[in-house]
Design a protein around this nucleic acid. Structure first.
Lengths: 192, 192
DNA sequence: CCTACCGATCGGTAGG
DNA sequence: CCTACCGATCGGTAGG
């Protein structure tokens, strides 16, 4: 039993190491900018050897992308559930999302931005997962007492693209992710 | 004279045709997703033949990117100059930018989003040109009578990423670019 | 996990 | 503008 468990743990952690390395490379250099040989080199292995652990580059990317969204979703849902009123839930959601996205070694959001770099079949899977993720914010926005002149669909798209784009201009050392999120929530606060 | 002019026009228009074709491909498929052979095929020519008209793929991309920003900048500056108050200038800038960016065959903005796909030396040139472009909005934002609690640097970054990301979720047939821009301007209107 | 390799594709060039 | 090719790199595989 200990032998089997040890062996399983060994295999699992090696695979997880490779996945973690791959996620960082994808997040930094994009799908097309990261070769299997790059991932191999960063894992101390030749590119071809990775195929003992994964099926294909595409499957690897999808697995990492969806796993990152699973984690982000769980954390955001918990933060939102802990908040009271509709505007507080909005702010809690913004803070949680930006803290996930702007964490020093964040893998989540950089991967959501290169849908165009990815093969068509892969893109379809990523879009489907992302759409499910965005339902979380749809629920928050639907509860907001917004002025009638504001289109909720546009509002939601603007909010999400806001939060997703922050990684492009964020620089550590100035405002914290929480402070930026509070600014976003303030900007999006328009009482009816 | 007519012979020389005719020859120059012929060379120029052929080159311009190729540039237009390349811009569309880059905008749709990104820098890495567009090969010189793709551009050749869409121009009715083999990939290698393009090098009679251009120096390199990198130089081609930079030329297209900067040309698109030149055009966008001129149009936006004119629209902004025609507006009266600070909030009207903000709205005019948003409308002009989104109308450029969301035009059916827009080339401008899709090219601003794949900085990560591009070689380092190219990226430096694109970033420099984009920074100059964004000064236009810095001037607009600096004139706004915003509440003291709002950070103008964050505000400007949020506004620009908003406008740049719209191309990702915009679908023709629903709201027009102008209507979306008006929603953005409304959302960003917070009087001090 | 490596050696050794595959077919495909890339940006670019020589020479006409 | 084409033919013909270069060296490099890609994702992936066979066989050990």
């Amino acid at each position: 039993m200990s032998k089997q468990a040890g062996s399983e743990d060994g295999v699992r952690s090696r695979r997880d190491e490779i996945l973690a390395v791959a996620a960082q490379l994808f997040a930094r250099k994009g799908y097309r900018g990261t070769s299997m040989r790059d991932i191999g080199e960063a894992s101390g292995v030749l590119g071809g050897s990775l195929y003992h652990h994964i099926k294909s580059k595409d499957a690897l990317f999808v697995e990492l992308h969806n796993g990152a969204l699973d984690a982000a979703e769980a954390r955001i849902a918990a933060a939102v559930a802990a908040a009271a009123g509709p505007w507080d839930r909005l702010e809690a959601g913004c803070v949680a999302l930006l803290e996930v996205q702007l964490a020093p070694d964040s893998l989540t959001m950089p991967m959501m931005n290169d849908f165009r770099e990815v093969p068509d079949e892969v893109r379809a899977q990523l879009v489907a997962r992302r759409d499910r993720f965005e339902q979380l914010f749809r629920a928050i926005v639907d509860d907001l007492p917004l002025p009638a002149a504001i289109d909720r669909s546009i509002y939601r798209n603007l909010l999400l693209s806001q939060l997703n784009a922050a990684a492009d201009w964020f620089r550590p050392g100035r405002l914290t992710p929480r402070e930026i999120a509070e600014q976003v929530a303030r900007l999006f606060r328009h009482e009816g």
